[in-house]
């Protein structure tokens, strides 16, 4: 894409806390948001990304570079994504999924969503509430009503452990 010059084009991205990052255009256009800017010719100077902070953007760029270096091999890409996300805590994942959403990077968005969902798999409601600190704002009556409505879903939960 846009490689008429033959030399790899570099883009400069700016996070909302004014950190600047250089990234190869070929990697950055994994983001549809950025790709559209490039295609519209708006990518000449610095591209401001108002919804992404520096720390998250650094991570996202690491991912962009890593995944775009892998040729079309879904298995290898998947294992790269797994490895990339394996050591991220929930706080980081949440920032990253927001950034992926804003940047319109469906592959990262899918991978992070799946990673967060993994934590909730086969867990009881009580466990998930505690894990994420979710406040139960139902009144006992309301909660009983919701529970009754979806009674069948609470019969199959098997584990309630912390792991």
């Amino acid at each position: 894409m846009a490689a008429e010059t033959g030399t790899p084009t570099t883009l400069t991205l700016k996070s909302n806390d004014d950190e600047l990052f250089s990234v190869a255009e070929s990697a950055a256009i994994l983001s549809v948001t950025i790709r559209n800017m490039v295609e519209d010719g708006c990518a000449g100077g610095v591209i401001p990304l108002d919804n992404v902070d520096g720390k998250t953007l650094a991570s996202v760029i690491t991912y962009m570079n890593g995944i775009s270096a892998i040729p079309a091999d879904e298995e290898k890409k998947k294992s790269y994504r797994d490895k990339f996300l394996s050591d991220k805590d929930f706080e980081t994942l949440a920032d990253m999924v927001l950034a992926a959403n804003y940047l319109n990077m469906s592959c990262l968005m899918d991978a992070v969503s799946a990673k967060i969902a993994q934590v909730m798999e086969k867990k009881s409601v009580g466990w998930v509430r505690r894990k994420f600190g979710i406040e139960n704002d139902y009144t006992p009556e309301e909660e009983a009503a919701v529970k009754e409505e979806h009674k069948w879903t609470f019969e199959g939960v098997e584990t309630d452990d912390d792991n």
Binding site: V97, M109, D110, S113, A114, I116, A117, Q118, M120, E121, K122, V125, V128, R129, I134, E135, N136, D137, Y138, E143, V146, K147, H150, W152, T153, F154, G156, V157
Partner: peptide, 18 residues
Amino acid sequence: SIISRLTVTEAVSTSILS
């Protein structure tokens, strides 16, 4: 997008979280 990754049983049971 997150709960779409769960089975339907698990996704529906998130309705009781809050």
